[in-house]
Design a protein around this nucleic acid. Structure first.
Lengths: 231, 231
DNA sequence: GCCAATATGACAGTTTGATGACAAAAAATC
DNA sequence: GATTTTTTGTCATCAAACTGTCATATTGGC
């Protein structure tokens, strides 16, 4: 539910209101008043999503979106365009350049939040804040609780995030490096093998309700959360 | 559904029309003809909702909305903006984002009532003015009283707001930053750690009636009010 | 059996939250 | 207007939980 969202908007009034709204929704807004500044910020840390004003002084929002989509590092970051009016042409151009959605001003906070959540759910499910459940194992990000067959399970912060990520992307194998990027953050320097240890701790905690079998090892590749028996 | 609704509108004709409508719908309208007067009224008693003309002499409606949203005490009060359709598009653009909804003039009574009802239905629970109760712990916003198993509990202002917010949003985890935004108001500059201290004071006060267990720590995430045992 | 990959247990450093004390600020009282 | 009293934010310190790494055991593939 808590995503780092970059807001690129040159008009201070609108920018502040958007920021306020994002905070209220539990996100962490970061602001830039120009495409250039946005690029600088993105170079430092990759946001989870970008809210991008269509019209910007200097490099336009469209141009910025195009650049981001051209760069492999930033291609995956969802972009929502803020456009002045529901101009069909803008819409087409915007979606062509790779925007994931667009919002036409004036917009209600409710609409904005709904669209943000929808895009997050599509691109980064573990950020959407939805309850995830797999065969009796249930994780609720909002209350930060995990239960197995309705019995509470205690997890440390890292194990919680790890399980959350795996449950949000079931049936798919992730390498240790990928897990480090997704769960730890893509800037930290930790040993690959550390993942093993946390996987073990997670399995340990899940053992109490017999859900430890869900976390499977894929030899030579990484780990996976799957409902299907392993071998 | 009877709510106290503050109408901020400088033009007498429209004001009266709106007031009449509200009365007919069973609400209790209170009027102000300027943002300044509105602030004065709000200082006395918190309305359940605000209908706000965006064009006002002196402080504009937009500015008022921003102030209200910046103050922890008033930020939960739903705001519906009244905007004139004929006004310059670009001025209106995005300005309503501080509001929960907006109505463009001229509007039908039917539309107004529908929107009011919708907003009231989903308004922030702690602003409803309703008594909140959790397992014998009871907080009455109207009388500003807290009791545990019918025994009075003394709380400082901050602890009261903190408890109120938590009780209005039970089971959900809030980070220190979120609590500072929601309870203190997001303009203040206070240390994150200060939240810890107030949580402790709150627990201290609740200890007398054995309700201190409700306020739970979620390591690495924040705090939560929950009826479920922690460990 | 041999090799490589993974599991496991232990450990020390680090982070995080709880707690008590304190002074500034605000409110209430005289 | 001065003086208590209450409230508030910050800090230093302590205990507990968590984390990353390593050494060693175990497993699976050939």
């Amino acid at each position: 539910m808590s995503a780092m969202i970059l807001v690129v908007e040159d008009e201070p009034a609108i920018r502040e209101l958007v920021v306020l709204n994002l905070q209220q929704a539990g996100h962490r807004p970061v602001v830039a008043d120009s495409a250039e500044q946005a690029l600088a910020l993105i170079r430092e840390t990759l946001p989870d999503m970008i809210l991008l004003d269509w019209m910007l002084p200097g490099m336009s929002g469209v141009e910025l979106a195009r650049r981001l989509k051209a760069d492999g590092r930033t291609r995956g970051v969802p972009i929502i365009m803020l456009t002045a009016r529901g101009d069909e042409q803008d819409k087409i151009t915007g979606l062509e350049t790779g925007a994931d959605d667009y919002i036409t001003k004036p917009f209600s906070p409710r609409e904005m939040n709904a669209r943000i959540k929808a895009v997050l759910r599509r691109r980064a499910p573990q950020m959407a804040g939805d309850v995830v459940e797999v065969t009796g194992l249930r994780l609720d990000p909002a209350t930060h609780r995990v239960t197995g067959n309705d019995r509470p399970i205690e997890l440390g912060p890292t194990e919680f995030r790890l399980l959350h990520f795996l449950m949000a992307h079931p049936e798919r194998v992730y390498s240790r490096a990928q897990l480090l990027d997704q769960v730890w953050g893509n800037h930290v320097f930790v040993e690959d093998r550390t993942v093993d240890v946390h996987i073990r701790r997670l399995r340990c905690a899940l053992e109490a309700t017999g859900h430890d079998g869900l976390v499977q090892t894929v030899r030579g590749s990484g780990y996976r959360l799957s409902v299907h028996p392993n071998s």
